[in-house]
């Protein structure tokens, strides 16, 4: 779908995308790099679970949200590719617990 007209200006580095390793150019705009890698949808909506992808690419629409390094609701169009980064798709609504470890009681449940 999306492709680059030039060789990547940054060296290829490994990031984790939904737990799978992919190579993206270091320093590239994260949303653009993910689009080129064929990633999608970026998230599903909290209300109707509709699939969404980046729309404005300038930080005003909040469609490109993803969980980056454990922090939810990050705007991927405002981020750059960093080696070792972990990007996860967001499904539905965030909960306040999504960025913290599960409670001990929950861990013990089989």
């Amino acid at each position: 779908m999306f492709r680059s007209l030039t060789e990547p200006t940054g060296r290829l580095v490994t990031v984790s995308l939904d737990g799978r390793s992919v190579e993206l150019p270091e320093g590239d705009n994260l949303a653009v790099a993910l689009l080129r890698a064929g990633h999608g949808p970026f998230r599903t909506t909290p209300v109707k679970a509709a699939p969404r992808m980046p729309y404005c690419m300038m930080g005003v629409c909040f469609e490109c949200l993803a969980e980056i390094d454990g922090v939810p609701n990050r705007q991927t169009c405002q981020e750059r590719v960093v080696p070792g980064q972990s990007i996860r798709r967001q499904d539905g609504a965030r909960s306040t617990g999504s960025a913290v470890p599960p409670a001990p009681a929950a861990r013990g449940t089989p």
Partner: peptide, 9 residues
């Protein structure tokens, strides 16, 4: 996308 990454559809 063109300005930041020479990326097109």
């Amino acid at each position: 996308m063109l300005k930041t990454s020479a990326t097109v559809a």
